[in-house]
Every structure is written in structure tokens, then in C-alpha cells.
Design a protein around this nucleic acid. Structure first.
Lengths: 156, 156
DNA sequence: CATGAAACGTTAAAGCTTAAAACGTTTCGG
DNA sequence: CCGAAACGTTTTAAGCTTTAACGTTTCATG
């Protein structure tokens, strides 16, 4: 029986497909919960939160194109979200000196204040929603998935 | 130095938050790639593919509500997607005997044929896109994320 | 049996999302 | 200088998504 297959039962070559389905489900569930809570707690949406989170990390502001690259969404998409955030008074746009094509987007003071509260709540929610994953597992899984790096992560 | 902290450097209590960010990024990247390829190869969309995948597993058909529960999307959403799939000729709807509220959704023969090809391509794409994750890691991560089970997984 | 609650599904309004096209701006080679 | 290419953004059309409201049907219960 030395020629017995090394593979154990259940290993039928679909590990990555199964992983994908699992990733999709977990992500959708967490996104759904976060959407509800952001709406209930701060009357905002996940995409708006994402944009604000990106801007939070860039006090000097970001170009629209950098924003869409960072968030992995289309540039046309960002236009609308930023529009609404400006209407909310949480974001402001200014032209970029020396280049009339570009515009720089920044959090306003009100936006910074609002986001600080949202981010704190968000961190608690994530901790709760992913509570089923141990800290060690969380670290390991994040590391494994980090090997997934793509072009966009090059430019901050 | 016996009282030195057990934690290693870098373990600052944000493992789950980091995991979440990583999950979100990987998921968005893969979804983006799949969307492009489904469009180019089969002139369809990810949501349509998801609905067909669910129906593929249920040859006897599914109720609209079961579909939306399974896919983790709103019932109103499914209405529109199924509408378009019916227009594509890939899905059919029939009433449920003895309950005039419910309707049963099924793949047509054309839908089954089309989906078989899509699913095969999809499996190859996932294998490629998640190729950076080893089979062992894929199995482990899937297992860790499976502990995440939620109510909806009860009713297949 | 009547009746009210629950279940099933659609519709409407608002917002999110993409791809592609259109538009103005800037850069750069010739 | 001038035209072409690259760049940055917005617009458009189509589709996805949610919540809330609505209408219908079913079912439990009094």
C-alpha cells in the first residue's frame, strides 16, 4: 500500500473555489450588518464611509482618481459619492494649483469629527461581527490574503 | 523579565479589523475580475451568475424568497434579476400548486447548458485568481471562515 | 367561519456601480 | 508653435441594491 495517494479524503481539488464562496458569504454578511448599523447610527452608507476612511488617512487630501484607485471602484462612481458627501458638509473639493484638470478632495472639520465617531463604532462592530474568528486566526488569515497584493496597492 | 508581555510586537489588538480590510480588498478584486470575464465571455453579470448557480443546485426550482435568502440579497433585488434572466431565456417562472402567492423559479434547458459552460470557466478563473493562496492555506482559511455560519445557512 | 397576523412577491424611490463616451486640460515631440 | 497623446473628470445608459410601502394569499385562532 505504499502507493496509496498522499491526499486525504475531501481534498478534491476545489479548495480555492470553496474558499471563494466562503469569502463571498462572509463579506456579504458583514457588509450587510455594517450597512444597517451605519444607517441606523450615523445616517450614512458604506460607500460614503469608505470614501471618508480613505480621506481620513490623507489629511492633505486626495485626487478623485487616487480615491477611485484606492477604493477599487470606477472613477465615475466616486463622482457621485463625493457629491453627496459635499452636500452632507463632510467633504470639500478644491482645485489643484497648477492643474485645472484635477481636484483635491478633503474631509471638512465636521467630516473629521463625524468620521472619528463612525470609525470607533465601526471598529467595535467588526470586532463583534468577526468575533467568531480568534485573534490568532485573524492574523494568520490576513497574512495569507495579503499575499494577494495587486498593482493598486503600490500607490499608497 | 518574567513579567514581559506575552504578546509579540505588532499585535496591537486590531487583528480582526485588519482581517476585514483584507477580506474586503480580496473580494472586490476577485469580483471585479470575474465581472469583466463574465461580461466578455458570456455577456452576463455576476448577480445573474449567482442566481443561476443557486438554481443549478436546485433542479426542482426555488421560491423567490428562498433565492433571496440564499444569496443574501433583498427580495426586491431578486425580482429584477430574475426578470432579466427570463428575458434572456435562461430561467422560467411557474406558479406553485396550491399557493398562489409563491412562484417557483427554474433554469430552462438553455439556461442549464449556458450555466454549465459558465461554471466551468468560473472554476478555472477562481483557481487562477486565487492561485497565490496555496491549496492548504485555502482549505484552512475556508475552514476558519466557515465558523462564521449564520441563520440563512440552515435552510440550504 | 371571521379575522387578523404572517408570508410571498412586486413596485417605487433613492442610491450605488460599471463601462464607455465625451469633455476640457496638460504635456511633449517635432 | 502645434498637433497628438496622455491625463483627470464627468456624463450617460444600463443594471444592481436596499428599504419601505403595497396588494395578495394563506393560515391560525377565536
Amino acid at each position: 500500500m505504499v502507493s496509496a495517494p498522499l491526499r486525504l479524503v475531501g481534498d478534491d481539488g476545489k479548495e480555492r473555489l470553496r474558499l471563494w464562496i466562503r469569502l463571498l458569504r462572509v463579506t456579504r454578511e458583514v457588509e450587510g450588518a455594517l450597512r444597517e448599523r451605519l444607517k441606523a447610527g450615523f445616517d450614512t452608507t458604506l460607500p460614503r464611509f469608505d470614501v471618508m476612511a480613505a480621506l481620513w488617512r490623507a489629511p492633505e487630501g486626495m485626487m478623485m482618481s487616487a480615491l477611485s484607485r484606492f477604493l477599487l471602484v470606477s472613477n465615475g462612481n466616486v463622482t457621485g459619492i463625493v457629491e453627496r458627501l459635499v452636500a452632507d458638509g463632510w467633504v470639500e473639493r478644491t482645485g489643484r494649483a497648477g492643474d485645472r484638470r484635477a481636484s483635491i478632495v478633503r474631509l471638512t472639520d465636521a467630516g473629521r469629527t463625524a468620521f472619528a465617531a463612525m470609525a470607533a463604532a465601526n471598529a467595535r462592530w467588526i470586532e463583534e461581527l468577526l468575533g467568531g474568528v480568534s485573534r490568532d486566526d485573524a492574523r494568520d488569515v490576513a497574512a495569507i490574503l495579503a499575499s494577494f497584493r495587486s498593482p493598486w496597492e503600490d500607490d499608497q
